[in-house]
Design a protein around this nucleic acid. Structure first.
Lengths: 197, 197
DNA sequence: ACACTTTATGCAATCAGTTGCACAAAGTGT
DNA sequence: ACACTTTGTGCAACTGATTGCATAAAGTGT
């Protein structure tokens, strides 16, 4: 149930049309809650019908005509309530880890290649995040006013750092996994003595 | 599309009934792919109909009668194919991060409490994982034969360590987030000079 | 014998997310 | 004038996951 809230947040930051939202989801917000344009349009329709957002009057509604939305008080209230509520972290669901577990049973054929591929993807994502950090969250970047970062700046930076920490974790773990499985399949390590070091 | 493969893996490790599977999913496998008993029963039905598993003959089929399944060659082949295939990591979808982003817009009221709550949950999960590691993956534990850990042991250990690394990352990030938002709401930090260190 | 609890299996409805496609307007090249 | 591309909006069908409920057998206490 997070998509409507993601959209409300984005619209509060700046009123947008469906396509603009879609593009913004491909960048900032979508890093933590991705959505396709179809999902977004459907949700915009629901939010409008339930009185949480409304279309700016400018354009008469017609297919293919740009339609911008803004958040109504009911929408802001809804979002505030959601932020201050409770929601448990969902259990991890990771197909790669599952596949490694299956590989322990049916054999790890071709797994190192897949690990390398994932490593490259996570390295790329990490680089993207650190670029954003360097651009938006270093001393002197435009988001920092003369009084230093605002509360909002600090929160946004924290969110970005969660992404960075997460990607770094995967990069490190995948590197270690490659060290262990890569060498193992290529040349089985000489087993240590039964009770030795 | 991972649930059937998770079930096949579990059944290869040991033939089980639906309820036994459900319990095993609450422990090992479910740490990385959780599932309810309803999902599992439905999937067992599908897997049986498609000839990937079969019920052990012993018990005649009846509601409330235990029914054990074992994997057929077609099931093992299916699993092998899945393991050696490619599958991109899914983009992150984390409601907590989204809520922090929303908090940057509508205010972070009550957020520190929620962060503390999540911190406690992740610390608990981390402790659970490290317990398992101490029990199953230290020199001398029963899974290690006289020749040291097998390839399968090493893979399973890697999967567990991914869980450990992940939880550790959250514990550290949440601690840092609390340090920043906790103090920030209580007493705004004195801003550094505009161009200072 | 009876009610109560535990173990076990399963259906049906719903919901969120994904995929595939269609439609409309405006701009671009020839 | 015409075809082609880009921008923008949207529906419909499907799939996977969740929630709520129903059923059946076996064990337990009185």
């Amino acid at each position: 149930m997070s998509l409507p809230h993601a959209i409300l947040t984005a619209l509060l930051e700046r009123p947008s049309s469906g396509l603009e939202l879609t593009r913004r989801f491909d960048r900032s917000i979508g890093y933590f809650w991705s959505a396709t344009h179809q999902q977004i349009y459907r949700e915009l329709g629901r939010l409008e019908r339930s009185g949480r957002i409304r279309a700016l009057e400018s354009a008469r509604p017609a297919r293919g005509r740009k339609k911008e939305y803004e958040v109504l008080p009911a929408g802001r209230a809804e979002l505030t309530g959601w932020v201050s509520g409770r929601e448990d972290p969902k259990p991890v669901r990771d197909p790669l880890l599952l596949r490694m577990r299956a590989a322990a049973v049916v054999g790890a054929d071709g797994l190192p290649d897949e690990l390398r591929r994932h490593l490259a993807l996570h390295e790329r994502q990490l680089a993207e995040y650190t670029d954003i950090e360097a651009r938006d969250f270093t001393r002197g970047a435009e988001v920092s006013g003369p009084d230093g970062p605002t509360e909002a700046d600090r929160l946004r930076h924290l969110v970005l750092r969660a992404g960075i920490d997460l990607e770094r974790m995967w990069v490190e773990w995948l590197s270690e996994a490659l060290r262990e499985t890569g060498t193992a399949t290529a040349a089985p390590a000489a087993p240590a003595g039964p009770d030795g070091v």
